[in-house]
């Protein structure tokens, strides 16, 4: 956790220039998908978008959860947490079940529906660049420092400080700090987040917990069930044998 990095996005600083959008496309070699970046949406060729809500501009991208639902549901482990904290995807392992898309509480992963060998596509927080000591594309491109990169604890400090120093300017909540167990993308905003199209009714519990509560019962069901069935097998067999013996002795008596 100490060395894990992430990004903080301050909506109040964003001017909606779209530099992050362009840079993301460039870094990830993605083709152009829309003439007007403000009208684009997340897709297999778009990992981050800038959205316009009146005067306010905001970004959507993978939240890089601490305990990601997508990582926990992937049966072959094609989606993993990187050492940097980013949630990364290995297409060679993927079998294409799309459970990650279904499970993601933020509905982020996209799919290459048009291809015969499709991949899951989403932001990977420029994991390779970060490991090579560079900034993620969107951070490097941002002219207003609306998106900044850093160690998670530092980012949290900064966010808290900003909320505190200017309580009128900010809605008092750091989105992404606790949602679905928290993640590596923090967002602070002047208005409540549901007004900006963020999923707002998320629990603070990591999503995999919901599954684990059922999954952890499996060993006891298996062992208990096995014992119960064996016992029933033996008991009913014995009962039938007794009944048969009784029948045959009765029969003899009557003869």
């Amino acid at each position: 956790m100490l060395n894990e990095t992430g990004i903080l996005f301050d909506i109040t600083l964003c001017e909606g220039c779209g530099a992050c959008y362009d840079m993301c496309k460039e870094v990830n070699n993605l083709p152009e998908t829309n003439d007007d970046y403000l009208k684009d949406h997340l897709s297999d060729n778009t990992f981050t978008v800038v959205e316009e809500y009146g005067e306010i501009y905001t970004r959507k991208l993978c939240m890089h959860c601490n305990e990601p639902a997508c990582v926990s549901v992937c049966l072959v482990g094609a989606i993993k947490k990187s050492s940097t904290g980013a949630v990364v995807y290995d297409a060679d392992k993927c079998i294409g079940c799309r459970y990650c898309m279904q499970a993601c509480p933020h509905s982020i992963p996209r799919y290459e529906w048009g291809l015969t060998k499709p991949r899951i596509r989403k932001c990977n927080l420029c994991d390779d660049r970060v490991k090579a000591g560079k900034l993620p594309g969107c951070v490097e491109a941002c002219p207003t420092e609306a998106t900044i990169f850093g160690k998670m604890d530092e980012l949290i400090e900064i966010a808290k400080k900003r909320l505190k120093s200017d309580p009128d300017k900010y809605y008092q909540h750091i989105y992404g700090l606790e949602e679905a167990g928290g993640g590596h993308v923090l967002i602070i905003s002047p208005v409540p987040f549901e007004q900006l199209g963020y999923v707002s009714k998320l629990t603070n519990e990591p999503m995999p917990e919901f599954t684990m509560r059922a999954m952890e019962k499996i060993p006891s069901v298996a062992i208990g069930g096995g014992l119960f069935l064996s016992a029933m097998f033996w008991l009913t067999k014995r009962k039938n044998e007794l009944a048969k013996e009784k029948k045959s002795t009765n029969g003899k008596e009557s003869i």
Binding site: V73, L75, V76, G77, I95, C97, P208, M215
Partner: peptide, 12 residues
């Protein structure tokens, strides 16, 4: 792949 690549946390 599921035969050789395991993720025991997955319901799938």
């Amino acid at each position: 792949h599921p035969l050789v690549m395991w993720n025991i946390h997955s319901v799938m």
